[in-house]
Design a binder for these strands. Structure first.
Lengths: 238, 238
DNA sequence: TCGATAAATATTGTACACATTAAAATCAAA
DNA sequence: TTTGATTTTAATGTGTACAATATTTATCGA
């Protein structure tokens, strides 16, 4: 979920929020990792007050879990929760598809094409983390183009959650198929073929969901501060 | 959005949150009303730290608007936003209907019947504020019974928003029709008639939406503290 | 009297302190 | 060595302080 739209300089909380978000989604931070307020605060040079704010935002995105009097932890969604997320996601994205078919325009097509090219590049550069993120962001773009800002907000949230779920449960996969499917979708939009677009989206999300249902491999253990700082660096330049 | 489920004594923030939520939804607090952290804090006897927390929660529900360096205010959703909310709501509730038809059981039927009786009672007692709230809560119950907790969370949010929208834009209406429609829905569930249930839900939400599109009447001006304290009293006993 | 400017006040942003509680470490006894 | 109790440490819950910024009020000139 984004904080505010027009803002010359990203606020510290936003930098921290995005850094952690990326770190979690790309699974640089293993689920279950503790995120003490002090630690967050010192990494991003802010007080606990602000660190809490960041953690709260991540909690709303379903990326961290907060229990009373315990450190926040990187969320570890259960398989049941995963299924729930996919259920909601399908229903939201169907609505997105319908909206987009109604308002489809050349400008939208160009924008999405551009995004897909970026996805392609990431794959060719063998940048797996990036290509996973871009695949998710394609759907967020779609939601944006639906013109319904609440819908966009919700899609944003479920996509975050899905990213984490995929990171957790997915078997290694080729992002290439996602790109192909994305292109097919655009074709259907161009043809204003709603049933076809809905069908494609269903299949596409189904494929994503299928990938998610096999336990993933073990994860590496890294130093919290190092990991976070790496991502903070990326945000600064953005 | 609820804070936590098992909790003997409601925390202060929860009391404050619910109080304000009700006060806003029942339009005891006019949209645009400023909600300074100090004021919230002194009414509920908490520090600004906690008052902020409460306001943040309300913000996520779309019930208050927060702008940097300005007091939070009771939200005043535009007509466009209202339409967006209804759009998302329809799509979410359709998903709820499908889920419920799949898992329908006698227990669920009884629970919903009980709720509808409460709606009826409120209408007969001419308690308009209560009957409006219960009409909304019927949908939250449905979402709960869908068994998908994320879906429930989102329905919860859109119903809050809708309540505020109705309070803002709705012409006076008979809640009775809502009750009738609710009963019809239950019949369709019992028959496991998905298309019929979907149709009913569509019509029902369409009716609600229609009611919303006419500017409401002027609202009274009351003292912030008095209003809030009245609602705080209600929560305490709950 | 009206409008503009300046002083005063109200309110938020953020850090920090202190009490409380959970987690970890230490130690004692079986 | 293992287990359970106890101390120590780490982390959160919440109030408060002080600076920065809006908003309101007061003041002054035309």
């Amino acid at each position: 979920m984004t904080t505010s739209h027009v803002e010359e300089k990203k606020s510290r909380v936003e930098v921290a929020y995005l850094s952690l978000r990326y770190a979690i989604i790309e699974q640089a931070l293993e689920p279950g990792t503790k995120l003490p307020e002090d630690a967050i605060g010192s990494v991003f040079e802010m007080s606990r007050t602000l660190a809490r704010e960041v953690l709260t935002k991540l909690q709303y995105d379903g990326l961290v879990e907060v229990k009373r009097k315990r450190s926040a932890t990187v969320a570890r969604p259960s398989l049941t929760e995963a299924q729930e997320v996919f259920g909601v996601r399908k229903c939201l994205e169907r609505a997105v598809v319908r909206q987009i078919c109604e308002r489809w325009s050349k400008v939208m097509e160009e924008e999405l094409e551009k995004h897909i090219r970026a996805e392609d590049d990431a794959i060719k550069a063998d940048n797996n983390a990036l290509s996973i993120r871009l695949a998710g962001e394609f759907h967020i773009r779609l939601a944006e183009l639906s013109g319904n800002s609440l819908l966009k907000k919700y899609v944003d949230e479920v996509v975050s959650r899905c990213s984490l779920i995929l990171a957790l449960y997915a078997r290694p996969h080729s992002s290439q198929c996602a790109v192909t499917e994305h292109r097919e979708l655009i074709k259907a939009f161009s043809a204003k073929d709603v049933p076809r677009a809905l069908e494609l989206m269903n299949e596409h999300l189904g494929a994503v969901e299928q990938r998610a249902m096999i336990p993933g491999t073990a994860t590496k253990k890294l130093d919290l501060c190092d990991v976070i700082q790496k991502y903070a660096g990326q945000i600064d330049h953005a």
